[in-house]
Nucleic acid binder design. Structure first.
Lengths: 337, 337
DNA sequence: CTGAAAGCGCTTACAG
DNA sequence: CTGAAAGCGCTTACAG
């Protein structure tokens, strides 16, 4: 065993009484028809006994790969992206890959290579989540998978594998829930963020309300923060024929809508129904607890990594869609209940 | 230039008309007195022109290091740890280090090596955040820095460098704020989590109230979730001589306290003052906005990584304490206001 | 002050 | 079916 304490393939070879090549073949799973089953077995046994783990640096050097994937997210401070990372890192680890994160645009060094600067480390692939259109500009040559960025994924309509949430379907579930309760005048508090998911949410809601007999949709937009959301929701509530339900693009926006309602003496849900989107921790911390659509964030990361690994090994993964789930809590009720 | 498109130190050597060794010496910053300034300058110029970036895999293989640090956190789903990672990764990247995350105990494979299983990848060091005592058991031989784990950091009282928040000081600020408002009967809704930070919070509050003339402290504990917190706060509010202020160990617990108060028809802050701890997004989403102590999570990660890097290069970093900041919002007022 | 050479631990043609 | 050898790109004694 090497002095540093960590056994190498040479040690395994010595222990098993074979050559280093044979060890590599067996442990790399490429021995079929090239090494006798008995030899293979003894190599495995030796590796096990020694607690051998291949040196990734050597492997990477030899293969010219890094076994590192870059996850690009808008921010890690929003509660949504922690789980995305967790899911991605979990499946990456199972395949001996590491995940480094870069946030955008915060950490971008400059616009030289497009929105993103080249990463410090060399990487094998990119997982880009919730990006604005064409954000991937500078990385045309690196295998990439786009998450939560729409089925058209990729700059210039190039085919990039995608994993998305079924947000339109989720929004339709909210609209149906509200319609079933008797709501007809719906207010949409939308996020002014240049991301596919918000366009999809807005579009789905508009169609659903248009298809509803007597349905009327009003709309105000805001940034995804409580103050801005409160102000936008207030505009909707102060209009004549105020809506009986406010559909918010995000749970945090719903928190702002709560404040706007309370400031006007409106009770939730008896005077006003409110819905969110995402189902983050906040949803059950609010009072009343928020009716919203749960988006499986960790699953997005996991499926995204699975897709990227497939792509890296030469596959042609097809687009995936992860359904959202309507979670009915206490913030919705029949109008004037 | 190598075929793959990425220049190597050989390419730089050729471009500058020197040997590979000289390139390595210059770019590694070890040329003082060994290479002439003129040569050094020309090497730098060549590297710049070619856009040379050293191959980390080769460097790691040669040096026997991985330039990878493991960040261990209880979970990435709590809003606190995303920023910790961000801060750590930011300073790591500046030094060519990557950060991999493992959550505990979720991802632990088994108790064979103590609470933590050996990581898949070889690593150079560990950053352990908010761990229970002795959680580091299995890693005695790896350089580690403990974050948010108390100044006594490390198993068996071994000296492990630490970075902590000034939570006692923060809790004293809350107590002083409440005392200044006129509160004497204080209820503590504490987290039943085996972490230093919560013991420190509880201890500091107990001392502060004990030192307050006429001060009376009651106490209930709960898990860090809204339902459990609501129940614990309720017990305090239902006791005779109910407290006029509830000091909560965490912002999420404060959200539960809000619910307990409302369920009893108590207005915040006129009937009851409530404080939180951490200042996560939730604090301003609640109504009224929460008075709390801001803990610089991203700074914790950044300082922790700085400390670990210092340790890895042979230094003896001394413990650091990051002060928290009292943020007074709308959830506190004089009793009976 | 500068260069030739060894070697980190792997994988993969190549030869037998 | 198995082994000897080359080489990935670095850093660091060592020789000059």
């Amino acid at each position: 065993m090497s002095l540093a304490g960590r056994p190498t393939s040479k040690d395994v070879a010595h222990e098993a009484g074979v050559s280093q090549s044979t060890v590599s073949l067996v442990l790399g799973g490429k021995w079929a028809g090239r090494v006798s089953p008995a030899t293979a077995r003894s190599v495995r046994g030796a590796a096990e006994r020694l607690g051998y783990r291949p040196n990734q640096a050597a492997r990477n050097l030899r293969l010219g790969t890094t076994r590192t994937v870059l996850l690009m997210v808008p921010t890690l401070s929003a509660p949504f992206f922690g789980p995305v990372y967790t899911g991605a890192a979990r499946v990456a680890a199972r395949h001996g890959f590491g995940v480094v994160v870069s946030t955008w645009p915060d950490d971008a060094v400059g616009p030289a290579d497009g929105p993103f600067a080249a990463p410090d480390e060399a990487i094998d692939g990119i997982l880009a989540s919730s990006m604005a259109v064409d954000a991937l500009g500078g990385f045309r040559d690196t295998p990439a998978v786009m998450l939560d960025s729409g089925p058209a994924g990729g700059p210039d309509g190039e085919r990039v594998p995608t994993v998305d949430f079924g947000v339109a379907e989720g929004m339709r579930a909210i609209a149906a829930h509200l319609a079933g309760l008797g709501h007809r005048r719906i207010g949409h508090v939308g996020a002014v963020v240049d991301q596919w998911t918000f366009r999809a949410r807005g579009g789905a809601l508009a169609s659903a309300v248009a298809a509803l007999p007597g349905g009327v949709l009003t709309r105000a937009t805001c940034a995804i923060d409580v103050t801005s959301a409160k102000e936008a929701a207030g505009r909707l509530l102060d209009a004549p024929d105020r809506p009986t339900a406010l559909v918010c693009d995000d749970d945090l926006i719903a928190a702002g809508a709560y404040k706007a309602a309370r400031a006007r003496g409106l009770d939730i849900p008896s005077d006003l129904s409110v819905t969110g989107f995402d189902d983050v921790l906040l949803a059950t911390a609010l009072e009343p607890e928020l009716t919203t659509v749960r988006l499986p964030a960790e699953e997005l990361g996991a499926q995204g990594m699975t897709t990227l690994l497939d792509l890296l090994s030469g596959g042609h993964p097809s687009p995936r869609v992860l359904p959202g789930e309507l979670v009915v809590r206490e913030s919705t009720a029949p109008p004037g209940a």
